[in-house]
Design a binder for these strands. Sequence first.
DNA 1: GAAACGAAGATAGTATTACTATCATTGAAG
DNA 2: CTTCAATGATAGTAATACTATCTTCGTTTC
Lengths: 224, 224
Amino acid sequence: MELQLQIKMNEKLFLKNPEQSELGKKIILHGIQLIHKNGFEAFTFKKLAEDIGTTEAGIYRYFENKHRLLIYISAWYWGWLEYRVAVHTNNIKDPVQKLKKVIKLLATAIEDDNRTSYVDESILHQIIITEGSKTYLTKKVSEDNKDHLFQPYKTLCAKIGSIILECNPKYKYPKSLSSTIIEMAHFQNFFMNNLPSLTDFGHNKDELKIVSFLEDLVFSSIKK
Amino acid sequence: MELQLQIKMNEKLFLKNPEQSELGKKIILHGIQLIHKNGFEAFTFKKLAEDIGTTEAGIYRYFENKHRLLIYISAWYWGWLEYRVAVHTNNIKDPVQKLKKVIKLLATAIEDDNRTSYVDESILHQIIITEGSKTYLTKKVSEDNKDHLFQPYKTLCAKIGSIILECNPKYKYPKSLSSTIIEMAHFQNFFMNNLPSLTDFGHNKDELKIVSFLEDLVFSSIKK
DNA sequence: GAAACGAAGATAGTATTACTATCATTGAAG
DNA sequence: CTTCAATGATAGTAATACTATCTTCGTTTC
């Protein structure tokens, strides 16, 4: 028997649901690969179409434009991460241990999960590090936000915020600390690999050092 | 007498030095305004040329492309911030007070400095919040980094890192904490104004709350 | 005062991007 | 057997991101 894992996606993210057709799944799979290979700026639907063996128009039937596709795969990523957080923390009682687990999930690389055949999670992780913030750093954030396109990110942030409050109910900045951990798990990774002098991990490029840094940051802050 | 303030810029940032001609200064001044108004993605040299009353080709004589222009104005911003940090901290002995000053400079809005006639610093601050990280979140980071295009950012980060070490010589992550402060000063501001549920400041949108959050974060972490 | 030069204006042209539209084919469901 | 949705095929357009060339105009320099 094959296990399948589906992340429920907001309808506004696409014109036609890519999960419900072969072509749709190819768009996601090859889209992720192509964005990873060339970067989001150089990525075009034309190149993607050629890659897949379909036409530009075919892709436009699924996604309004490449920015929406990026939001889609980001939303998928955050939804998937939330799922992983749920799985890995639901048997843990101690909120401190929970939070440590979350930090590890955020900051360390992932292997491809075979239950999601049309998504390669390890590449996806790399994409979100480099391109993730471009989903919201635009003039249209508020508009996109009204369509709830960023909900998975916000849900995860809220979830982590609530664990922080479990650790210390009096801590004043649970949501800001949460978004700080999320962003920094990625930014420190990007800096480590590309602008190492902005970090203390440049020499050995070990993701676990990022975990240590984030743990130190978080637990110093919320210590009662 | 008129005071003038010049930030020395890396030669690789431009094809022709925009500080040394009227047209060049107009490109910076109107470039900043236009990026602020439309966002970087919608910004084009054609629109900028029309705005200024020159031609596209005229602008290409100064900057290779719009990404280089963005790096230029970002570099200018970080250089200018470093200058302000120097001015505002050089009479302070206590490193803790120094660091507090730095956090305030990073996280609060600025007024236009009349000594730099062709740059409007308050708009510039807004641009860097939204577009700043796009300077380095590209496939060409390493290349651009080799040309030292990010030096002002790195210098500022190093400077703040050294103040952190003054506060606590044993703290293990001065550079990562420094880049965290810098990025979060901006990201928390962006979130507060655009995705408020990612922060704890959404209701009153007060920059000073961001300062408090960052101070709490930093001083908990480096406390001996 | 003429020559030389650099900065900027004027104009044109190209490849690519970011779409939109239309029509034909095909395979599955009713 | 029809219908219909999904895809393929093809075309076209406006805008973007450049590059090239030629002219003009003001300044320096001999």
